[in-house]
């Protein structure tokens, strides 16, 4: 057992963890941030993607103790209270969601991409989500949605 402190979605947590506990287990089993999904357990599908200090990571490939002192964003922390993040709004409007299991990871990969590159090309969007597998949507509407979200974010930036 080990005690670590970390920040999740803007809140501080101090938790007891086992040395071999993965970040995904801490998030899901211990803290019940169940929006983070496990699809393969070996960093191939991207369903467990979270943002750690601004970078996307597969939370199944990170041990919980490695998150000590870090800032984590999960899908639960993407929107602003009840208001949807422009990426979430665009995903809904463009029909980018089907079964939904890959969607939390997709939204976080999209966020990390747009945070760094506010106006990506379609091909850059495809690259940005190439670590996230989806079996339902064929990705095209997800690409449309991220493209639209980048425009929403630009408009938001202009009105601020």
């Amino acid at each position: 057992m080990k005690k670590i402190a970390l920040n999740i979605n803007g809140e501080e947590y101090v938790v007891d963890i086992n040395e071999d506990m993965r970040l995904i287990d801490l998030l899901r089993d211990k803290l019940h941030f169940t929006g983070t999904k496990e699809g393969c357990g070996e960093g191939e599908c991207g369903a467990c993607t979270v943002i750690m200090d601004g970078e996307t990571v597969n939370s199944c490939m990170v041990l919980a103790f490695q998150a000590e002192g870090r800032e984590i964003i999960t899908i639960e922390g993407v929107g602003n209270g009840e208001a949807l993040h422009p990426i979430q709004k665009a995903f809904l409007e463009e029909g980018a969601v089907q079964c939904g299991f890959c969607i939390p990871g997709m939204v976080l990969s999209a966020k990390a991409l747009l945070d760094k590159k506010p106006a990506p090309t379609r091909n850059e969007i495809r690259e940005g989500i190439s670590g996230n597998l989806c079996r339902c949507t064929g990705y095209n509407k997800i690409v449309d949605a991220i493209d639209k979200a980048s425009k929403y974010l630009k408009e938001e930036g202009e009105t601020k």
Partner: peptide, 11 residues
């Protein structure tokens, strides 16, 4: 817009 969409984009 799909009725199950909101729950899915918010996790």
């Amino acid at each position: 817009i799909r009725v199950d969409g909101l729950a899915k984009v918010t996790g």
